[in-house]
Simulated assay, not measured.
Amino acid sequence: MGHGVAWTARAFGVALGWVGKALFYWPWVGLWRYVLVPVGTAVGVTVAWLVHHLIVVPALWIHRRVLTPVGHAVLWVFRGLGAGFAWLGLHLIVLPARWCYRRVLTPVGHGIAWVVRGIGAAVAALVRWTVVVPAVAVWRYVLAPVGRAIGTAVTVVARETGAAFGHAWRVAGYVSRAVGRFVGTLLRWVFVEPFRWVYRAVLTPVGHAVRDVLWRPVRNAVREAGRSVRRALGAARESVRRTRAEIRRAVFGGSGAPERPEPGAVPEPRREQSVPAARTLGKTSGRDVSPPTRGPGLGDAG
């Protein structure tokens, strides 16, 4: 039955395709191939012939017979004007400026430079003998000896002051170290040791009792409930899958092979119930817990 329906649908599709081509495709292809393409080719050839003989040929004639001679004449005129202006600029501007530079400006510049060099030499000699030489004499024979004496005195004072400050710093360090050790020992016996004793003697046993009596039973019960829910959901999914397979075989027929699981369905892995290990002496919940070492308590004196 299913094969007959499929064959009939395929034959109907082929017939419908032939009818669609005969009504909408082949007429337009024939119109394009046997009417529009020849007409367009003829129109294009005609337009190209008209453009060539009505525009290109007259334009080439005008360019050769009119524009080229006129352009050559204009270029000749501009060349003549350029040569005339160049001759006038050379004889009216360049040659007079060159003569003025060589015969007037150069001698005047040399004279001004000689006068400036003489004035500079005189000023330099005046400054040397009125400022530089006295300043060098004062530095060499007055300021340098006084500066060396002051530097020696300052060095001696700074060295002695530094030595005294170093001795005072070391003494203060010894005193502060002794005070710090005393304060640290006092804080240790007042705060740290009592807190350590409370943690070892009170908080640790209470925490172990809460973990063994309350936390572990609750955690095991939650895990067992989660496993039960997952098993129930897996059984429900399997029932739905089998029911769907039976309905599909009843409606469409089949070989009776079991249905493959869906790509997204992942079977629930089987888990064995974990059995806690028996307690032994010195162990708690399967982990070695060494007895806490007894530190110095409040009553220990060292």
Rank of each mutant, 00 (worst) to 15 (best):
W7Q: 09
W7T: 03
A9E: 15
V14D: 05
A15I: 09
A15M: 12
L16S: 07
V19R: 02
F24E: 01
W26Q: 13
G30Q: 15
L31R: 15
L36Y: 11
P38I: 12
P38L: 13
T41P: 01
G44V: 05
V45S: 11
V45W: 06
T46R: 10
V47P: 02
A48W: 11
A48H: 11
L50T: 02
H53K: 03
I55P: 00
V56Q: 07
R65E: 00
V66C: 10
G71Y: 07
L81Y: 15
A86F: 08
A86D: 08
V94W: 05
V94F: 12
L95Y: 02
A97H: 04
P107A: 02
G109Q: 05
G111K: 01
A113C: 05
G120M: 06
A125D: 10
L126K: 06
R128A: 05
W129P: 00
P145T: 12
R148C: 01
A153T: 06
V157Q: 14
A158V: 10
T161C: 03
A164C: 06
A172N: 04
T185N: 05
L187S: 07
W189M: 06
P194E: 13
P194R: 15
P205I: 06
G207M: 10
H208Y: 10
V213L: 08
L214C: 08
L214Q: 03
V222I: 01
A225R: 07
L233A: 04
R242Y: 08
R248C: 13
R248E: 14
G253A: 10
G254Q: 03
G256K: 04
P263C: 08
V275T: 04
P276R: 13
A278R: 15
T280E: 08
G282N: 01
G282T: 01
V289T: 03
P292F: 10
G297Y: 08
G299Q: 13
A301Q: 14
